[in-house]
Nucleic acid binder design. Structure first.
Length: 423
RNA sequence: AGAGGAGUGGCAGAGUGGUCGAUUGCGGCGGUCUUGAAAACCGUUGUACCGCGAGGUACCGGGGGUUCGAAUCCCUCCUCCUCUGCCA
């Protein structure tokens, strides 16, 4: 969430940022934040004063009791009753103001970076670059949902039987392709200096709030109600939360982690014509990279992560483009997001396979993720993450783009991981 | 899952109702000494909120309660350890 001081000190800039996101009633909301914060401060200050008085009376009583002056002590005591009720009332209003403030801040998205283009929807995203050659396929080209049947490598009907729609079963070379991609992605990240972690894939409520999935995206996560745990929609949640309530030393920055996890998304209401096959699933595999950096270095890190992901796509020989998301299409918690899309040559459309974002202090403020600077003072770190990469659409593009009359060619880099070179 | 025990500052470990944000040791930082280092000695060393500042307030696993006053007593939840049971 945003910092109140950030809003106070840069009111106009924050306002402009929210407007770029088409955030409604921005002025009124920001003014209310300040009003609630003022309210919080004033009732807390009053409370603290009364508490100080009460504390000093208690000390007096302590001294009197020690000296055996019981009657004196009783006299002093009589003053405390009203203090007590006043303190309680002020405490309640402080808590109330705090909660209201927090609830309101949770509804305010991050402020976009200056380079983020204005815009309302995906149509307004800026294409930063395109790379690679879009293959020309033969007449009988098939979309991946046909190819997987033809070669019997992914079975949606079996998934329906044992779980439901959107939970495919990978079989034979299909399963091995999954495993190869995961290993390839992890190994590449290790070479890049990322430290591998294997986090839990169920997380508690605090973690959900920490990275911003809660409260605004509650419906997107599967919820194990008996234990009040959530199935992760992305490894970002457990990995970034590793650093919740942590004060790092400046030398530890940047923190670079990579993790493979399955991801679970309910995707309620989003099924339609464009989501056939592997395009959108309830369960999928993803390798995620996370960085925690010094505030001065986060945009450098973002560019580095963007080129790293592009490198993966180049190695997989996939044509791709990079988009700078516009204010209207960017995720709630992000300040700047690059989306990487690969071209799926049978569907003849671009598929998003990675999203690389800088959250600046938006997450670290919720997470209380700080570092100690040279002046020994703590300050919020910046957090970033990106998919490197999400598997299903990569698989879809590999299958479609490399098909020929006799089968499907596998990208060179995967051969040693796969143990075969064609499907 | 059942029985018992325990959760205190970076770590170790005191403190069982009163001036305790908390003895002490280790570690960290600064200094004296030294050609340099070690040792020794001296000092310093949590986080957050409010305040220009002086200073005030909160925090001893989380939450609630008793009391003028809680690290200390009570309730509850969580976590860890030991024993028993079950199990990949």
């Amino acid at each position: 969430m945003l910092l109140v001081n950030q809003i106070r000190e840069n009111f106009d800039a924050v306002l402009a940022g929210l407007q770029k996101r088409n955030f409604p009633d921005a002025t009124a909301v920001l003014e209310q934040v300040i009003a609630l914060d003022d309210q919080r401060k004033s009732s807390q200050t009053q409370r603290d004063q009364l508490q100080a008085e009460s504390n000093s009376i208690s000390k007096q009583i302590g001294v009197l009791m020690k000296n055996g002056q019981r009657e004196e002590a009783e006299k002093v005591k009589s003053r405390t009753a009203e203090l007590k009720t006043e303190i309680k009332a002020l405490e309640d209003s402080t808590t109330q103001a705090e909660e209201d403030l927090k609830a309101l801040l949770y509804t305010i998205p991050n402020i976009p970076h200056l380079s983020v283009p204005a815009g309302k929807s995906a149509d307004d995203n800026e294409v930063v670059l395109e790379n690679g050659v879009i293959p020309t396929l033969h007449e009988d080209k098939l979309p991946h949902w046909e190819l997987i049947k033809k070669y019997d490598i992914i079975d949606f009907d079996l998934g329906v039987k044992i779980t439901g729609a959107g939970f495919p079963v990978y079989k034979g070379k299909g399963a091995r392709l999954q495993r190869a991609l995961i290993n390839f992605f992890l190994d590449e990240a290790l070479k890049e200096g990322f430290v591998e972690v294997q986090p839990p894939i169920l997380v508690n409520e605090d973690s959900g709030y920490g990275t911003g999935q809660l409260p605004d995206k509650e419906g997107q996560m599967y919820h194990a109600t008996a234990d009040n745990l959530y199935l992760i929609p992305t490894a970002e949640v457990p990995i970034t939360n590793l650093y919740r309530d942590v004060i790092l030393s400046e030398e530890e920055l940047p923190v670079k982690n990579v993790g493979y996890t399955p991801c679970f998304r309910r995707e309620a209401g989003s099924w339609g014509a464009h989501v056939r096959g592997l395009n959108r699933l309830h369960q999928f595999d993803k390798v995620e990279i996370v960085q925690i950096t010094h505030p001065d270095k986060s945009y450098e890190a973002l560019e580095e992560m963007s080129s790293y992901v592009q490198g993966l796509l180049q190695k997989l020989e996939l044509p791709y483009r990079v988009l700078r998301l516009c204010g209207g299409d960017m995720g709630f918690t992000s300040a700047l997001t690059y989306d990487m899309e690969v071209y799926s040559a049978a569907q003849e459309r671009w598929l998003e396979v990675s999203s690389v974002s800088n959250f600046e202090t938006y997450q670290s403020n919720r997470l209380k993720l700080r570092f100690r600077g040279e002046d020994r003072k703590t300050q919020l770190a910046h957090s970033l993450n990106g998919s490197a990469l999400a598997l299903p659409r990569i698989v879809a593009a590999i299958l479609e783009n490399n098909q020929d009359a006799d089968g499907i060619r596998m990208p060179e880099v995967l051969h040693s991981y796969l143990g075969f070179d064609r499907i």
